[in-house]
């Protein structure tokens, strides 16, 4: 109780360090989300109208999902060293499966009658994809981004182990120094950030639903 009461004071006293960690965390998460999510969108669009390729990408997503983030981080150490790069790559990989599954499912569920009409009216393949399939898949795609953002934001806490910085630094240092306010600040900030991403993308997903 006393620790919680002391928390605001601690944060004020260390606001520079907290803001720095927060900035690093947001930056890392956003970069990974954009890179991993972007790769997943490209992969999903390639699979549109090619059922076998779509099936293969879904299988790939399943494999990626089974990889523990910490193991990926450790495996990347000898390749990319420490710091931002390995953390970024590991988190990007983490973002791929939910976005890919969301997009592929969304494309698959797009109203076949609308697509038939689109083809019959003389839309090209690309026009059908971008003017009909993708808008119809948008809500599920954003749901995928929502899941990915929560996983990436919480996964980014592990970046601290390989020198990637972020709010995880506060947690690991807090544990090492038995500095409870530091630890709690890091943990609560990560949780709030994840909640915020979840809420924001959830609202956006509802917005684009036709």
């Amino acid at each position: 109780m006393s620790t919680l009461a002391a928390l605001p004071g601690w944060v004020l006293d260390h606001h520079a360090a907290v803001l720095l960690a927060l900035g690093e965390h947001v930056q890392l998460s956003l970069a990974a989300l954009l890179a991993g999510g972007g790769a997943a969108v490209l992969l999903g669009l390639l699979g549109a109208g090619r059922p076998r390729l779509a099936e293969a990408t879904i299988t790939l997503a399943g494999v990626l999902r089974t990889l523990p983030s910490l193991a990926v981080l450790a495996a990347l150490l000898p390749l990319l060293g420490v710091g931002f790069a390995p953390s970024f790559v590991a988190l990007s990989i983490l973002a791929v499966p939910p976005v890919l599954v969301g997009l592929v499912t969304g494309l698959r569920l797009a109203d076949p009658a609308a697509l038939d009409a689109a083809a019959g009216m003389g839309m090209t393949r690309t026009q059908r994809l971008f003017r009909v399939s993708l808008p119809l898949a948008a809500p599920l795609l954003l749901e995928g981004f929502r899941t990915a953002s929560v996983q990436v934001v919480s996964g980014a806490a592990l970046a601290s182990f390989i020198g990637g910085g972020g709010l995880g630094d506060l947690v690991t240092a807090g544990v090492a120094l038995l500095d409870l306010p530091r630890l709690l600040t890091g943990a609560i900030a990560i949780a709030l950030l994840a909640l915020l991403a979840d809420l924001g993308l959830g609202l956006l997903a509802r917005r684009v639903a036709p």
Partner: peptide, 20 residues
């Protein structure tokens, strides 16, 4: 085929209006 279809009206049972 794409240009051909733009010159032919097409109506199907399930209508297929674009919901968005």
């Amino acid at each position: 085929p794409v240009r051909l279809r733009r010159g032919i009206g097409y109506v199907i049972q399930n209508v297929g209006l674009f919901p968005h």
